[in-house]
């Protein structure tokens, strides 16, 4: 456990988590959520939870992003701002 690396990862993770719920465009939010999931994967692996890290990488960064993008592709933009 290197505390500088931990601090940087947690900082980026918090920034990504806040950005994912505040950003306007849904596609941008999905990509930021994938980045959050990737940083979370590194954190799990650093905490020696390799199984959880694997699940986070496959489900969080892989399947969820594809499902969100496929769902967004079926929606229409209602506001024009």
């Amino acid at each position: 456990m290197i505390w500088e690396l931990d601090f940087a990862l947690l900082l980026f993770m918090t920034i990504c988590a806040i950005a994912a719920i505040t950003v306007k465009d849904l596609l941008h939010a999905t990509i930021v959520l994938a980045a959050y999931s990737l940083i979370m994967t590194v954190l799990w692996a650093e905490m020696n939870a390799v199984d959880v890290a694997f699940t986070e990488a496959t489900v969080g960064a892989g399947i969820t992003t594809v499902l969100f993008i496929a769902a967004i592709a079926r929606t229409r933009r209602s506001s024009s701002d």
């Binding site: 390799v50 199984d51 890290a53 694997f54 699940t55 496959t58 489900v59 892989g62 399947i63």
Partner: peptide, 12 residues
């Protein structure tokens, strides 16, 4: 590390 769930998701 790994297992049925993760392998199934990777296969999907």
């Amino acid at each position: 590390a790994g297992g049925g769930f993760q392998g199934g998701v990777v296969f999907a």
